[in-house]
Measured scan of single mutants.
Amino acid sequence: KTVEVNGVKYDFDNPEQAREMAERIAKSLGLQVRLEGDTFKIE
Protein backbone atom coordinates (compact mmCIF):
# COMPACT_ATOMS: atom_id res chain seq x y z
CA LYS A 1 0.00 0.00 0.00
CA THR A 2 1.00 3.59 -0.59
CA VAL A 3 0.28 6.71 1.46
CA GLU A 4 0.19 9.97 -0.52
CA VAL A 5 0.45 13.38 1.15
CA ASN A 6 0.68 16.57 -0.94
CA GLY A 7 1.86 14.57 -3.96
CA VAL A 8 4.59 12.79 -1.97
CA LYS A 9 4.20 9.00 -1.87
CA TYR A 10 5.37 6.66 0.87
CA ASP A 11 5.34 2.89 0.27
CA PHE A 12 4.56 0.35 3.00
CA ASP A 13 4.86 -3.44 2.81
CA ASN A 14 2.27 -3.83 5.56
CA PRO A 15 -1.23 -2.54 4.54
CA GLU A 16 -2.30 -2.20 8.18
CA GLN A 17 0.76 -0.07 8.95
CA ALA A 18 0.02 2.10 5.91
CA ARG A 19 -3.58 2.65 7.04
CA GLU A 20 -2.50 3.55 10.58
CA MET A 21 0.13 5.97 9.31
CA ALA A 22 -2.34 7.59 6.88
CA GLU A 23 -4.88 8.09 9.68
CA ARG A 24 -2.23 9.53 12.01
CA ILE A 25 -0.95 12.00 9.39
CA ALA A 26 -4.46 13.04 8.38
CA LYS A 27 -5.47 13.62 12.00
CA SER A 28 -2.40 15.77 12.68
CA LEU A 29 -3.07 17.87 9.57
CA GLY A 30 -6.84 18.03 10.06
CA LEU A 31 -7.43 16.28 6.72
CA GLN A 32 -9.32 13.23 5.45
CA VAL A 33 -8.02 9.85 4.26
CA ARG A 34 -9.45 8.48 1.02
CA LEU A 35 -8.60 5.04 -0.38
CA GLU A 36 -8.00 5.14 -4.13
CA GLY A 37 -6.90 1.77 -5.51
CA ASP A 38 -3.84 0.79 -3.45
CA THR A 39 -3.18 4.35 -2.30
CA PHE A 40 -4.37 6.09 0.85
CA LYS A 41 -4.68 9.73 -0.26
CA ILE A 42 -4.65 12.39 2.44
CA GLU A 43 -6.64 15.43 1.37
Rank of each mutant, 00 (worst) to 15 (best):
L29V: 03
L35V: 13
S28P: 03
I25T: 06
G37Q: 06
F12R: 02
M21F: 15
A26C: 08
M21Q: 07
T39V: 14
K27E: 13
Y10P: 00
G30V: 02
P15H: 13
M21E: 12
K41P: 01
E16A: 11
K9M: 10
P15L: 11
T39C: 15
D11I: 15
V33M: 08
Q17R: 11
A22D: 00
V33H: 04
A18Y: 02
F12T: 02
V8I: 13
E36Y: 09
K9W: 06
K41R: 10
E36R: 03
S28L: 15
D38I: 04
E43C: 14
V8N: 07
F12S: 02
R34V: 13
K27Q: 13
K9Q: 09
A22I: 05
R34M: 08
V33F: 12
K1N: 10
P15I: 13
E23R: 07
F40R: 00
V33C: 15
D11N: 14
D11Q: 15
I42G: 02
R34Q: 07
E23I: 12
K1S: 13
I25G: 00
L29N: 03
N6C: 15
D38P: 04
Q32P: 11
Q32S: 14
V3H: 02
V33A: 05
V8G: 03
E20V: 09
E20N: 08
I25K: 00
E20T: 08
N14D: 14
E20P: 00
Q32V: 15
E4F: 11
V5N: 02
N6T: 02
F40G: 01
M21N: 06
V8R: 10
D13W: 07
G30P: 00
Q17S: 11
D13C: 14
K27A: 14
T2V: 12
N14L: 08
L31A: 13
V8D: 05
A22G: 01
L29H: 06
K41I: 15
L29A: 05
R19S: 06
L29F: 06
L35W: 08
Y10C: 14
T2C: 14
A22V: 05
T2M: 09
P15D: 09
G7W: 02
E36S: 05
E23Y: 14
Y10F: 12
D38F: 07
R24K: 13
G30D: 05
G7S: 04
K27C: 14
Q17D: 14
N14Y: 08
E43V: 14
G37I: 04
K41G: 01
L29K: 04
K1I: 13
K9S: 09
E20Q: 11
V5T: 02
A18D: 00
I42T: 02
M21C: 15
L29W: 06
Y10S: 03
V33S: 03
T2G: 05
R34C: 11
K1F: 15
I42R: 00
G30M: 04
D38M: 06
K1Y: 15
A18K: 00
K9A: 07
A26S: 06
L35R: 06
V5M: 07
G30H: 06
G7D: 03
E16R: 08
A26R: 01
Y10E: 02
R34S: 08
F12K: 01
K9G: 04
Y10K: 04
R24E: 11
A22P: 00
D11S: 15
V3S: 00
V8M: 11
E16D: 13
D38C: 14
A26G: 06
Q32N: 11
R19A: 09
G30E: 03
G7H: 05
L29Q: 06
E43W: 10
E43T: 12
Q17A: 12
T39S: 07
L35F: 10
E43P: 05
E4I: 14
E43F: 13
R19Q: 08
T39E: 04
I42D: 01
G7L: 03
L35H: 07
E20G: 05
M21P: 00
F12D: 00
V3R: 00
V8S: 07
E16Q: 12
E16F: 08
L29T: 05
K9N: 05
I25C: 14
P15Y: 14
N6K: 06
S28A: 15
E23F: 13
N6L: 14
R24L: 13
D13Q: 11
M21W: 15
V3L: 06
E23T: 08
E36G: 00
V5L: 11
D38A: 07
A22F: 05
R24A: 13
G7Q: 03
A26L: 03
T2K: 13
E4A: 06
A22S: 03
A18N: 01
A18G: 02
E16W: 10
L29D: 03
K9P: 05
G30W: 02
E20F: 07
F40H: 03
Q32W: 08
N6G: 10
I25P: 00
L31F: 08
A18Q: 00
N14P: 03
K41V: 15
V5H: 09
I25M: 08
A18F: 04
R24Q: 12
T39L: 08
N6P: 01
A22T: 00
D13E: 12
A18L: 04
G30K: 05
V5C: 14
E16P: 01
K27P: 00
L35N: 05
E16K: 09
R34P: 03
V5G: 01
V5W: 15
E23S: 06
V5D: 01
A22W: 04
Q17P: 02
D13A: 12
L31I: 07
E16M: 10
R24D: 07
F12Y: 08
K1A: 14
R24H: 11
D11G: 10
T39M: 09
A22K: 00
E20R: 10
Y10V: 07
L31K: 05
K1T: 14
V33P: 04
N6Y: 13
T39A: 06
A26M: 02
K27F: 10
K27L: 14
R19Y: 10
G30Q: 06
D13F: 07
F40C: 04
L29E: 04
I25N: 00
S28N: 10
D13I: 08
Q17M: 13
K27G: 09
T2H: 14
D38V: 05
V33K: 00
D13N: 09
V3G: 01
